[in-house]
């Protein structure tokens, strides 16, 4: 799957996302891969905040906002209802942020995976609660400053969501990055062809929260993969595959230093 095969139609536009938003690119591209017979389910978060301001509704496919903790459960209900009505050839896809996935929505996601529901859950990970003003989430990496870890940065490592969903018994899971769209698109297409619960975790930088320029989103997302900060992996039938080995691990320090969020004042630095 490449940009050449991509549907020319747009399903997510006219929204109010910030310049350089990685999340909106993740949603836009995913819907182009999945097509118009897709129901998009979004809990509270950046993409629901920018996409559903009545009367300016930004999805041209069926889409809705769910309660924050309920994305996976509402997806289950939609899938069950459509199946009962024998509606064929449809996909139920979720777009939840890192907080909506790894924190408040984790229980419902675990329930949906446990039931083996036929849903595709996509976590667009910008590594903090960006919509509410950059607060720490369970997916904020160690050392990243947020407005709730304002000086010292997060003291905890990022939760390993892929390992969590794999342990819950997910049918297919993969990490992805908006810096490698061909890989992201391929994984969405693959997941759409698998029955059962699927989970894709796409790194979607937020220039505002990360402290990079708005024209650096894609570059920083690509670099995160190249330096080994965010490996591209896939898990299927109990086996892990690494899709792309880090090509320049020596640039890891530079990758971290160029992001404002990792700049810690000397007096707050710890060993």
């Amino acid at each position: 799957m490449s940009a050449r095969d991509l549907d020319a139609r747009e399903f997510f536009f006219g929204h109010k996302a910030c310049a350089g938003c990685g999340g909106s690119l993740a949603v836009r591209i995913a819907l182009k891969v999945l097509g118009e017979r897709t129901v998009a389910v979004l809990p509270a978060g950046c993409m629901s905040a920018v996409g559903f301001n009545f009367p300016q509704l930004a999805f041209t496919n069926n889409a809705l906002i769910t309660p924050f903790a309920a994305a996976a459960s509402v997806m289950t209900g939609i899938e069950a209802g459509l199946r009962r009505r024998s509606v064929k050839n449809v996909r139920v896809v979720g777009f939840a942020g890192d907080g909506g996935t790894a924190d408040i929505g984790l229980q419902a996601l675990s329930g949906a995976i446990d039931r083996g529901d036929n849903i595709l859950y996509i976590c667009y990970d910008n590594e903090a609660y960006m919509n509410t003003g950059i607060q720490k989430s369970g997916l904020t990496p160690h050392g990243a400053r947020t407005t709730t870890t304002p000086h010292k940065g997060s003291r905890r490592p990022k939760k390993d969501m892929l390992a969590i969903v794999a342990a819950n018994g997910v049918n297919y899971t993969a990490s992805a990055s908006i810096g490698y769209l061909d890989d992201y698109m391929r994984k969405i297409k693959k997941a759409a062809g698998i029955t059962g619960a699927k989970y894709i975790h796409v790194l979607a930088p937020c220039p505002t929260g990360w402290g990079v320029n708005t024209d650096e989103t894609v570059e920083i997302a690509r670099e995160a993969v190249d330096v080994g900060f965010w490996p591209l992996r896939e898990y299927e039938n109990g086996t892990w595959i690494t899709n792309r080995a880090p090509s320049r691990p020596q640039d890891l320090e530079r990758h971290i230093k160029r992001q404002g969020r990792f700049k810690i004042e000397k007096r707050y630095q710890e060993d």
């Binding site: 459960s73 289950t76 209900g77 939609i78 069950a80 009962r84 229980q107 419902a108 039931r115």
Partner: peptide
């Protein structure tokens, strides 16, 4: 002839019902 969904909480119980209602079935 119905789908019985085993949820992990009441929050999800009503969320599933709501999703199914949106899909056009009695819940």
């Amino acid at each position: 002839d119905a789908e019985f969904v085993h949820v992990e909480s009441e929050h999800s119980a009503l969320s599933v019902a709501m999703g199914a209602s949106l899909a056009g079935v009695r819940t």
